[in-house]
Each structure stands twice: as C-alpha cells, then as structure tokens.
Design a protein around this nucleic acid. Sequence first.
DNA 1: TAGTGGTCTAGACCACTGA
DNA 2: CAGTGGTCTAGACCACTAT
Lengths: 235, 235
Amino acid sequence: MSQPDFNSWQGIQDEVLRRIRTRVWKPGAQIPNEMDLAQEFGCARTTVNRALRQLADDGILERKRRSGTRVALHPVAKAVIDIPIIRTEIEERGGAYGYQLLSNEIETPPSKVNFALNTSKPEPMLHLLAVHLMDGTPYALEDRWINLGTVPLAQDVDFSVHSANEWLLENVPYTHAHLSIVAAPANAREQDYLGAPADAPLLQMDRVTWQNQDPVTFVTLIYPPGYRIRSQTSG
Amino acid sequence: MSQPDFNSWQGIQDEVLRRIRTRVWKPGAQIPNEMDLAQEFGCARTTVNRALRQLADDGILERKRRSGTRVALHPVAKAVIDIPIIRTEIEERGGAYGYQLLSNEIETPPSKVNFALNTSKPEPMLHLLAVHLMDGTPYALEDRWINLGTVPLAQDVDFSVHSANEWLLENVPYTHAHLSIVAAPANAREQDYLGAPADAPLLQMDRVTWQNQDPVTFVTLIYPPGYRIRSQTSG
DNA sequence: TAGTGGTCTAGACCACTGA
DNA sequence: CAGTGGTCTAGACCACTAT
C-alpha cells in the first residue's frame, strides 16, 4: 500500500476526485473550505487552492467567493479535439503528403461567408479551392475565403506552392476561432475531387478565425466518407 | 490608454501572447527565464510561473527544466467541445425535452462493440435504443450498450423513465472516455425514428467510457440532418 | 460585516537535464 | 556541476457576496 501524498497538489486532487467518485462528496454538495482542507491534509492553503482551482477549471467543481466550493451538479464532459496542420496530420499517420491548388480567384463572397465573417459590406475576398492528398489519394477538400482587408499580404502569396492552411497558421496569428462540424452530402464538386459517390455522407468542418475584431478567414474542410474526428476526455 | 497590469498573472500572460503574436518572440525561439521576466515585469517569479505554466498547458509554450522555455513551433490548435446531458442541451436551447425508450434487451454484442470496449470474451450486455425529443420532434437517436460486468446495477433500472444518458452520468462515474465523430447515411431505423430521408447524411458521435480499466458503456448518438457540433478555440 | 476564494510575495528546496 | 522550471510554504491583502 502506497500512501497518497497529501503534500503535493496532485495527490490532493486525486483524493478529492476519489471522494467525488465514491460519493463521499455528492453532486451539488458543499465541500470544506480551503483552510480546513489544508489542515486536514497537513499542507498550505495555496496547495489546496492549486488542486481545487484546476478542478474548477475542468468543470468538476463550482467555486464562489464567500459561498464556498460545491461539486458540480452536471459535470459537463469536455472533449478536446486537436486541429493540426493537415500536412502534419497526414505525416503523423505515416502517409506522404500531397497538395494541389484547384482554383484561386478574387470574388465577392456569398452571403453565407459574409454572415460567418460578420462582414456587413461585401468586399471582394480571396477564394481558394485546394485538395490535400495522402499517398496520392484525396484526404480533404479545402474551400477557403481570405479577408484581404485583414490580410492584404495574402494577395502576393503563391498558394500553388504553400497551402493556405499552413501559410496562414505560420504567418497570420489569430486571437480566437469558431468551429462547427456537420454532415453533408457529396455534391458534384466533391464527387470529382474526393472521389466520393453522389450524395455520400461527408464530414464537414467549418472554421472562422479572428484577429481581435477583424475576421481573417472562413474555411470549410470536407473529408471523404468514413473519416473520423477523434478525441479523448477526462472524467 | 490603459497601462497593462504586469502585477497580475493575466496581465503578464497577455503581454507574452502579444509578443508571440507580433513575432517579437518567434516560433521555436527561446524566451527569457522566469527570474529575468519577473525582474522585467517587476513581480515575483511565482506570478510569471503561473502565467507561463498555463500557456504551456495550452500548447503555446514548451518548457523543459534546465533548457528553458520556447515558443511552440506548431501550436496545435485545440477545440473544446462541451458534451452536456442531452436534456440540458435541449433545455438550454429553450426547447421542451422528451424521451422515449424504443427497445431494451440483454444481448450478446456485435464484434464492433466488443472491439470498442476491448472485451475479449463476449458476454451479454444491456442494449438500449432510445430517442430524445425537442418540442416533440426527434433530436437524437441513442444506441447504447452497457457492460453489466462493470455496472450490474443497470439491470434493475427502469430506463423507460430515466434516460441511460442521465442515469449513467449521475450514478456511474467514469475515469476517461474516447470519442469519435463520423458522417453516416440514414438507414431504415434512422428514417423511422429521426424522420430522415433515406441515405441522408447524419452526424454520428461514438463514445466509449471507462472506469479505470473496466469498460462501462459504448454509445452511439445519431443526429438528424443539419445538426452541428460547435466549439470555440483560443489561439 | 464577515467568510470565502483569488492572488501576490519572498523565500526555499527539489527534479531534471545539458555541459 | 549548475541553471532551469516545478512546487511548497507562510503570510498577506483583496474581491466578492451572503447575511
């Protein structure tokens, strides 16, 4: 039997989790305050604080000044999805990466794009269509709009060499992004470039990125039938 | 002009992020050590540590003892998806929640389920099929296998009253989970219960949860056409 | 007003790892 | 060996909020 180590914040966190899982501390119930826990565990309040703060960040505890700490009633599970550069994703799977630019034009975006980017006055944007390949077969279709108002430099880049996916990540820092995932049927374009049967169910990932208040880019990534997004979760 | 507050860990974090975004500190480059930064910002090393530690947790910095702190070369973007209880999800959208159990049997699981749960010797499991409703219309179809070896209690629960989604979350704590998302065509069952056209593209979410080494449940949630999973990302 | 968590400080020791 | 981050401590003050 190894004794749990209550002189480390991780040891304390493990013990707190154990008490929550075994219902010693039930959902919704208040747990002792930091001072009392510090005394029980024989450590400084700071150490208890570190352990509990992280659990609160993870949504397992709810803390309020003055009213104390409670076990969250409905611990919302959170799944973290890694969104690597596509080249990296393919190479990590042990495949050879390929890339092909299909079209590259400056156009007035459709209202869907203006809505997503929150651009009220439609101005021409850079519209790119490209396909990413793994070992020569289509891995993902990338349909991207770049707001030249925010990223004027993009006008001078040769996107037949660099994929916009990489160029933007490496050259245009963003402050925040929105992402949504939906299932959509393959249309003629996707039949052509992904080799998908007509109306096959495809996973589609839409992402909008921002630089402070300024919209940077709206991208739709479309994956062939059967593609899975994976993630792990802690409970 | 409001002066940044270098006496708070958040102020320091903002400044560090600013330097990374503006390429003052370039990807891959080493940044000053904690002592020097503390001196520059006029605060305690602990405060700098708190700011940098969180950025390292987020994958923006890479830290190693003795060799120091570097800006991550390929900051993998991470999207966090909240996975609430379905009732909660519906009620937060302002809808009325409904639930209907469609079938409830003890069966030997197909190999797909055994594979996902890593159960080598196939033993009968509890197999549930249910539909969640928002304002009377189908919101999600739930196809669930519960490992009675890990959760024998489940045998005595009336799942026509409690949804397994809620009962498990409230009564069976898990330690970790795997999740995957895929697009799949509507089959006959989904046409019936979700009201989806034949072969319509549906978003499907598979989740496996574990209690330490023991598999708890394998659930597939299938959503009607057009359903979106959303998330925000920090960059 | 009083009790709780949130944070900062100054100092200390430790764990890891490159030279 | 020495320099770096990782952590703990004891104490302090502050911010919020239930009473």
